[in-house]
Design a protein around this nucleic acid. Structure first.
Length: 589
RNA sequence: UGCCCUGUGGUAUAAUGGUAGUACGUCAGAUUCUGGCUCUGAAUGUCAGGGUUCAAAUCCUUGCAGGGCAACCA
């Protein structure tokens, strides 16, 4: 039985339209203004617009809403295109509202000729003062009753550049007492002698959003123009203009913008975070920008899955960042290569290793390297002496085809300091005096002796290993609850690891008292300068994802170089271990 | 104190007059050479009052709560 997936309200509308034979194909558009980077909120809109036409047949245009020359730049156009493609979508046509400036100008003339638009000489202050308030009607402008001929003449001269910025506007003639403020003779065109990133100095009058967006939709025969809730009041004007222009009827539908807990979601706030150096840039891995998430190690699949799972509706929402984290864990669990890295080392010496193991060596050494070419190259095979050997470990238990890799094991190892406790609580499965644990893919060891410095700090552990407990050949009959990750002291490579936590301490920084920046999490970044990694990580690649066993999911950062490897933590592993006594924060030390 | 939009477990989303379901989270347990994954179970919900109806989350009504609207921004 196929599971019936319920439809969201837009899918319902579209299915109804298709059944009614209203359109022969569905056309949508993703309409960013090229004045900033895309964030995960935009991803919703992208997934919706592209997803709908993919599902129902039709296409989606990428249209830059570039009607304000003073804020828009080509740099943003490029980054937006990158981000959309990275998310996995391809548009049919790349368009710009500015492509339509000549057509839009003709539309304006059409409105003037119909007597429903006029040139107003009032200043912006005067227009504002005549607008009224939500509870009081506005007053007609003294220029409202100009003749069609005069309006035509004035508007054409506006275009020619005869008037200075702000001296005149073209306004729709609707109703200054309208209950919808946007219908009180909205400004359609303004004078701006500014250089435009595409049209250069060709124009000195620019259409306002309402005069450009719906008309661009109509020109492109967009059937379903999807936008966020703040445009609901604009719909009346959207429809009014299309009706009076007598052009293709596009319809606007609104859904709620998506906010996510423990972060902010506005270009203005991002800019402050960057300018005030709370983050290092638009692509800082803590930023909810697409670029930031990408650098953090999020996959397009996980973001699409997140958008899908949250769904859409018409009420303001604050989605749980935990769901985003669930989505990336779910994907990474399937694809990440398992590796071992120790962040905070505690040295252990296996006192009986070497002398007692004459018979376990031979057969394992040859043919042990498989690992799907991962680390297969024999380059880092150290000479195998009686004090060391290679062990095999699966690259990904979730993916049988991922093969195995070889890891050098020796008598001197590092384990995680937090995996040892001198006086452990109940149900402590890790190392403690006299207690046994398994070293992943290697042997079971027992902690015999602690070495401390003069301050009483444990500096080293002396352990003994059980030769019969080798992974895959365990005949010891011993069962231990805990398995630790480890790395051989002699073979370890060092790398930098950047551990990220949520950027804010509160769920909804924007709704708190005072400045949202007061709620920044001071510990959102913790850098481990020198972590000890198994040698295969020397060849880490940008297109691979890693799970550092028991630590989380990681990816290579762009700051990496030949001599210095840097990893970003995408997300921690889910951690259900909680000693009842101290249920601490989830963040790393 | 005008107009518009919206109220379903902690979060998000279904149920389109007919058994309030799903996912994440939480809690408990099983399993485990990752305290991961996987599996099992549990708790928690229709904003409030009134009305229509055999039957209301759904329709009507009155409140209440949240959001939006007075840029030559989009």
């Amino acid at each position: 039985m196929e599971e019936v997936k319920s439809l969201n309200f837009l899918e319902e509308i579209i299915e109804k339209d298709i059944k009614a034979g209203k359109y022969k194909e569905i056309v949508t558009r993703f309409p960013p203004e090229p004045n900033g980077y895309l964030h995960i909120g935009h991803a919703t809109s992208i997934c919706l617009n592209f997803g709908l036409t993919k599902k129902y047949g039709g296409y989606t245009n990428l249209r830059f809403d570039d009607t304000n020359p003073v804020t828009e730049e080509t740099e943003y156009v490029d980054s937006i295109k990158d981000d959309v493609r990275w998310l996995g979508f391809e548009w049919k046509n790349e368009r710009y509202a500015s492509d339509y400036f000549p057509q839009l100008y003709e539309y304006a003339i059409r409105l003037i000729k119909k007597g429903v638009a006029y040139v107003d000489d009032s200043t912006s202050e005067e227009i504002a003062s005549m607008k009224g308030t939500p509870t009081e009607p506005g007053r007609n402008s003294p220029y409202r009753s100009r003749s069609v001929e005069e309006n035509l003449d004035l508007f054409q001269r506006m275009k020619k550049g005869e008037f200075p910025d702000g001296s005149r506007t073209l306004r729709a003639k609707i109703d200054m007492a309208h209950h919808n403020m946007l219908m009180r003779d909205p400004v359609l065109y303004r004078i701006k002698h500014a250089h435009h990133h595409r049209t250069g100095d060709e124009w000195c009058i620019y259409p306002m959003y309402d005069m450009a967006h719906g008309q661009s939709d109509s020109i492109e025969h967009v059937t379903h123009s999807i936008c966020t809730l703040e445009f609901v009041p604009h719909r009346e004007l959207y429809d009014w203009l299309i009706e009076h222009l007598e052009i293709f009827t596009s319809r606007q539908y609104e859904f709620a913008r998506r906010n996510i807990s423990y972060t902010v979601m506005s270009k203005r706030k991002f800019l402050q975070l960057v300018n005030d150096k709370h983050v290092e840039g638009w692509d800082d891995p803590r930023m909810p920008t697409i670029a930031g998430l990408r650098r953090r190690g999020y996959t397009p699949e996980s973001i699409r899955e997140f958008c899908d799972r949250v769904g859409i509706a018409r009420r303001e929402i604050l989605a749980d960042v935990g769901l985003l984290e669930f989505c990336i864990r779910e994907h990474l669990n399937k694809i990440a290569l398992r590796r071992m890295v120790v962040f905070d080392p505690l040295k252990i010496v296996i006192t009986n290793y070497g002398s007692e193991r004459s018979n376990v060596k031979g057969e394992m050494v040859a043919g042990m390297i498989d690992a799907k070419g991962q680390m297969g190259e024999t380059r880092n095979e150290q000479p195998v002496t009686s004090n060391e050997e290679m062990v095999q470990s699966e690259n990904n238990p979730e993916d049988p085809d991922s093969g195995y890799r070889a890891i050098p094991f020796s008598s001197e190892l590092y384990i995680e300091r937090e995996d040892f406790m001198e006086n452990p609580p109940k149900k402590w499965f890790r190392l403690a005096p006299g207690q046994m644990v398994r070293l992943k893919s290697a042997y079971i060891i027992k902690c015999d002796e602690m070495i401390k410095d003069e301050n009483g700090k444990v500096t080293e552990l002396h352990c003994s290993y059980i030769p019969e407990s080798r992974s895959g050949h365990d005949t010891s009959g011993i069962h231990v609850k805990g398995t630790l990750h480890w790395v051989s002291v002699k073979h370890a490579i060092t790398c930098e690891v950047r551990l990220y936590d949520r950027l804010f301490r509160v769920e909804d920084p924007s709704s708190e008292e005072g400045d949202f920046k007061d709620y920044i999490n001071p510990d959102s970044l913790h850098i481990v300068k020198a972590a000890y990694a198994e040698p295969s990580l020397m060849h880490a690649r940008f297109d691979e994802r890693y799970q550092f066993l028991r630590k989380g999911y990681f990816c290579l950062d762009k700051d990496s170089s030949e001599s210095a490897i840097v990893f970003n933590r995408t997300v921690t592993l889910k951690d259900s271990w909680k000693p009842s006594a101290f249920k601490g924060s989830k963040s790393e030390p």
